Simulated scan of single mutants.
Amino acid sequence: MKELEFLATCGMFEKVDAESKTKPDGTLALTVSFLESTWPSADRIRCINVGLMAQSKPIEMDLDMTNKEKMEYYRSQEKDYRRRIDKARPCLLPLSVHREILQMLKDHGKVSARFLQKIRDRVQKWYHDEGYACAQVVNFGYLNTREVVCEVVERDITQLVVQFQDKLGNVVEGNTQLPVVKRELPKQVRLNWV
């Protein structure tokens, strides 16, 4: 039931239904049917790094709100989101992958939950191929506009500790000088060197 509730409230499906039938052998057959959400076609994509940003806490909408209060609530949410993405840093994603995703948007037409998964998979594949094993797409925003915002947590490096280890994994004093170690690190990591 929790899984069904999650599917129904995640925003990717218009409708989620479950039907169960008891089989003659006493087991239960469960059929889950759904109607996938779709949004207008988009012609722009923006990938942002939200890794070090504080997560915004959604304000609960009161069910007794008037239409005017609901509109104000939605405007407030939109303003907060726009401020959030304007503060975000751009992703490391290269222009070639960005162009590839733009072409996917042009070729596909309407944006659907399944199509967003394809975009997510492509973005995450690039990160994983480049050695960023922990990077992941966490959200898509602006789905009702011509621009799709892909929010990525790149798992920023905030501290770097250099340790030398022997073959058994014990920490030992190393012979290599730290400038040599620094020289061999990727550029993005060197920028965080203290």
Rank of each mutant, 00 (worst) to 15 (best):
E5W: 00
M65W: 01
E69N: 05
V181I: 05
Q55F: 03
F6C: 13
D121E: 15
V16K: 00
Q117L: 11
Q165F: 01
G141A: 04
A42D: 02
E130L: 08
K57A: 06
M104F: 03
R146F: 00
L92A: 04
Q124V: 05
R122I: 01
I48H: 10
E3P: 08
L160K: 14
V171L: 13
Q188S: 11
E3C: 15
C91S: 13
E14N: 13
P179C: 10
A18C: 13
H108Q: 14
M53T: 00
W193S: 07
A8K: 08
D64A: 04
E72N: 06
N67M: 08
G169L: 02
L143K: 09
Q55N: 15
R183D: 14
S20H: 14
L191C: 11
G51N: 04
L191R: 10
E19V: 09
M1V: 01
L52I: 11
Q177D: 15
G51P: 01
H108R: 12
V194A: 12
P186L: 06
E60N: 07
L116R: 03
D80N: 15
E100M: 05
V123P: 00
S112Y: 09
D17M: 12
V181A: 02
L105Q: 14
P94M: 08
Q77M: 12
A42F: 07
F164I: 00
P186Y: 09
D121K: 07
E78Q: 15
E69Y: 07
K23Q: 10
C10N: 15
V137W: 02
V149G: 05
K21W: 00
T9R: 09
E151S: 14
T38K: 02
A135R: 06
L30V: 03
T66G: 02
